[in-house]
Amino acid sequence: MCLAVPGKLIERDGHSGTVDVRGNRVQARLDVVPDVRLGDYVLVHAGFAISVLSDDEAAEALDLLDDPDEAMPHDGPLMP
């Protein structure tokens, strides 16, 4: 229901900032992520940063690329 894209905060001016989304510069309000810092990755929706992605979260994103059979926490009795 809601498109949101990740990007890096590269400029900040009070409640607004500029976010780099894969080479595009997007104006975003920072009202709901007041603690965001330059260089942080944020998720942008309708001109608003709605969350800050932490380094741990970025690492977790990379984990997605691992083999799912090893990464899965819930291997139930169905697994061969």
């Binding site: 229901m1 949101a4 009202d31 709901v32 309708a46 608003f48």
Partner: peptide
């Protein structure tokens, strides 16, 4: 319009 994702923008 929109769900909880978009409502904060309208609130601001």
């Amino acid at each position: 319009v929109g769900f909880e994702t978009t409502a904060p923008a309208t609130a601001v």
